[in-house]
Measured scan of single mutants.
Amino acid sequence: RLHIEVEGTELMKKLVEEAKRRNLNVRAKVENGKWIIEID
């Protein structure tokens, strides 16, 4: 499991799109103003 903290929506969208393209499980949520992304 990969755990990433990202500031900025554009970067988050790119990460999520790339993960979906590779058929990975992606969860994204906002915590303290940062995107928290978990990829399995």
Rank of each mutant, 00 (worst) to 15 (best):
M12C: 15
M12G: 04
E7G: 09
V26I: 07
N32E: 08
K13Y: 05
V16F: 10
T9Q: 10
H3R: 15
E10F: 02
V16E: 05
K34A: 05
L24R: 05
R1E: 09
L2P: 06
E7N: 11
I36S: 01
L11N: 12
K29S: 12
V6N: 05
I39A: 01
N23W: 03
E38V: 12
A28M: 13
K20W: 04
R22F: 04
E5P: 05
I4K: 05
E18P: 00
L2E: 07
E7D: 11
E10Y: 01
R21P: 00
V16C: 12
W35K: 02
E5R: 07
L11P: 04
L15W: 06
I36P: 01
K20N: 08
I4P: 04
K29M: 11
E17P: 00
E38Y: 10
T9Y: 15
A19C: 12
M12P: 02
E7Y: 13
A19D: 00
E10M: 04
E10Q: 06
A19H: 02
K34F: 10
K20M: 14
M12A: 11
G8H: 12
K20V: 12
E18N: 08
G8T: 15
R27Q: 13
N23D: 07
T9A: 13
K20D: 03
K13L: 14
R1H: 14
W35I: 12
I36V: 13
R22T: 04
E31D: 07
L11V: 10
I39F: 07
T9L: 14
R22W: 03
M12S: 04
A19T: 03
E18K: 07
N32Q: 02
M12V: 10
K13W: 05
R21F: 04
V30L: 15
N32D: 12
D40R: 05
N23E: 06
W35T: 05
K13M: 13
V6E: 03
E38H: 07
E5M: 11
W35M: 08
E5K: 08
I39S: 02
I37G: 01
K29R: 15
E17N: 09
T9E: 15
A19K: 01
G33N: 09
N25P: 11
V30Q: 15
R21D: 06
N23V: 01
E38S: 08
T9H: 13
I39P: 00
E38T: 09
I39Q: 01
R21Y: 03
D40E: 13
R22V: 09
V6D: 04
K13N: 11
E10S: 06
R22I: 08
K29E: 05
I36E: 06
M12W: 05
R27T: 15
I36N: 00
N25F: 02
K13V: 11
K14P: 01
R1M: 13
W35A: 03
L11E: 14
K34M: 11
H3N: 11
R21M: 11
I37D: 01
A19E: 01
V26T: 01
T9D: 14
K34Q: 10
T9F: 15
K34R: 13
I39N: 00
L11W: 08
L11K: 08
N23P: 00
K14R: 11
K13G: 05
I36K: 00
W35V: 08
E31G: 03
V30N: 14
A19S: 04
E18W: 15
R27A: 11
K14L: 13
V16A: 03
E17D: 12
I37K: 00
L11M: 13
I39E: 02
K14I: 13
N25W: 01
E18G: 06
A28N: 03
N25M: 06
D40V: 12
M12L: 10
E10P: 04
K20H: 11
K14F: 10
E31M: 08
L15R: 00
I39Y: 04
E10R: 05
L24N: 03
E18V: 09
D40K: 05
N25D: 11
E5T: 11
I36Q: 03
I4W: 11
N25T: 10
L15I: 15
I37N: 02
L2V: 13
G33A: 00
V26F: 04
L24K: 04
D40N: 09
L11D: 09
G8W: 14
E7L: 14
E7W: 14
R27S: 15
N32W: 00
L15K: 00
V6Q: 04
H3K: 13
R27E: 10
I36Y: 07
I36R: 01
L15Q: 01
L24F: 03
G33Y: 01
V30Y: 15
E5F: 10
E5H: 09
N25R: 12
E17L: 06
V26W: 05
N32I: 01
K14M: 12
A19R: 00
E31P: 00
E38L: 07
V6T: 07
E17W: 04
E17Y: 05
N23H: 12
E38F: 09
N32G: 08
H3E: 12
M12D: 02
V30A: 11
V26L: 04
N32S: 03
D40H: 07
R27N: 13
I4Y: 11
E31Y: 03
A19Y: 10
W35R: 02
I37R: 00
R1Y: 13
I39T: 02
V6K: 03
A19L: 14
I4L: 11
N32P: 00
G33K: 03
K20R: 14
N25A: 11
K14V: 10
N23K: 07
K20T: 10
K20P: 00
V16I: 12
